[in-house]
C-alpha cells in the first residue's frame, strides 16, 4: 500500500456571489485557491481554520460532491475528478463522510436501520439478510442497540445521532472518512465519547481520517498532521506536534493564542 492514500493537487474552486443592490452585480470568491494536501494511510489529517476559510468546500471537493474548477484528487493513484459517474459511484464507498450537524444530516422520515443500511443497498453489498447483519453489528459497535433500528432520528439525543452518522459512514468499510466538525455541536462530555469512538474505530478498521475542526484542543487530541487554512489558502502544514510547538504563520499563532483556558488547567 502506498504511503499516501489520498492526494489533492492544486485544487481551485471559485464561487460566484451575487452582490450589490438587489444582487445585480456579481463577485468571484475563491473558496479554494491552489490547495494541495496529502493524507497518509492510517493517519488523521486535521484541517483547521475559521468559518469561511474553505474547510468544508475542501471536504466536499475531495469527495467529488462538488465539481472542481481545476486540480486533481488522487485516491490510491486514480484521479477521481476524471472518472465517469458510474465509476465514481463505485469508488465512493471507499470514501465516506460524517457531517457536522447531527440534527440536520439524518432524514427524519427514515428509520435508523434504513439510514445505516442505505449505503449497503445502493452499492449492492450482500443480500438483505447480510445487510441486516452488518447494520446490527455496526450499530452495536458504535454503542447503539438492535432495537434502535426501528426508531426514528428524533428519538435520539445529539450524541446518539452522531453515532448513527458514524455507523452510516463506516458500515461500508471505507478507507477514507472525512469528518466535517463531527463534535462541534456536542457537549464536552459527549464530545469526549465520540472522539474516543472515532479513535478506536480508526485502529480497528485501519481508517484514514480527514478531520475538519476549528477547535484546536480537539485537533491536538485526534490528529497526526494538520493544515491551517485562511481565506481559501493553506498557510501552514505539517505535523501537529511541530505546529503547536512552533507556529510560523501569524494566523496560526492567533488561532493558538485564542484557545480558551490556556492558562488555568483543571
Amino acid at each position: 500500500m502506498s504511503e499516501n492514500i489520498l492526494v489533492a493537487r492544486n485544487l481551485v474552486k471559485t464561487y460566484t456571489q451575487r452582490s450589490g443592490r438587489f444582487g445585480f452585480g456579481s463577485t468571484q470568491l475563491k473558496a479554494l485557491n491552489d490547495v494541495s494536501i496529502n493524507l497518509r494511510t492510517g493517519k488523521t489529517l486535521a484541517v483547521v481554520g475559521e468559518s469561511g476559510s474553505g474547510k468544508s468546500t475542501l471536504a466536499r471537493c475531495l469527495l467529488q460532491l462538488q465539481p472542481l474548477d481545476s486540480g486533481e484528487v488522487l485516491f490510491q493513484g486514480q484521479d477521481m475528478a476524471k472518472l465517469q459517474p458510474n465509476a465514481l459511484r463505485g469508488i465512493r464507498k471507499n470514501l465516506q463522510m460524517v457531517f457536522q450537524d447531527p440534527f440536520a444530516s439524518l432524514n427524519p422520515r427514515m428509520r435508523i436501520g434504513e439510514i445505516v443500511g442505505e449505503g449497503l443497498l445502493i452499492h449492492g453489498l450482500g443480500d438483505s439478510r447480510e445487510q441486516q447483519k452488518k447494520v446490527i453489528a455496526m450499530l452495536k459497535r458504535v454503542g447503539l442497540t438492535e432495537a434502535d433500528m426501528q426508531k426514528y432520528p428524533h428519538e435520539f439525543s445529539g450524541g446518539q445521532r452522531q453515532r448513527v452518522g458514524i455507523a452510516r459512514a463506516l458500515v461500508l468499510h471505507p478507507q477514507v472518512v472525512v469528518c466535517d466538525e463531527p463534535v462541534s455541536a456536542l457537549d464536552v462530555s459527549i464530545q469526549a465519547q465520540i472522539l474516543l469512538l472515532l479513535k478506536e474505530l480508526q485502529q480497528e478498521m485501519a481508517l484514514s481520517y480527514i478531520f475538519i475542526s476549528h477547535d484546536l484542543r480537539v485537533v491536538r487530541h485526534i490528529a497526526d498532521d494538520m493544515v491551517v487554512m485562511y481565506r481559501g489558502q493553506i498557510v501552514e502544514q505539517g505535523l501537529v506536534s511541530d505546529i503547536y510547538a512552533e507556529p510560523e504563520h501569524s494566523y496560526t499563532q492567533n488561532l493558538l493564542a485564542a484557545i480558551p483556558g490556556k492558562h488555568v488547567n483543571g
Binding site: V188, S189, Q191, A192, Q193, L195, L196, L216, R217, V218, R220, H221, V240, S241, Y244, L256, I259, G261, K262, N265, G266
Partner: peptide, 19 residues
C-alpha cells in the same frame, strides 16, 4: 471531576475520559 476529565487540553498530554 468527570466533566473536567472530558475537556481536551491544548498540549494533548491528557487522556480523555468520557463520563
Amino acid at each position: 471531576k468527570a466533566l473536567l476529565a472530558c475537556v481536551p487540553d491544548a498540549e494533548g498530554e491528557k487522556r480523555l475520559k468520557p463520563i
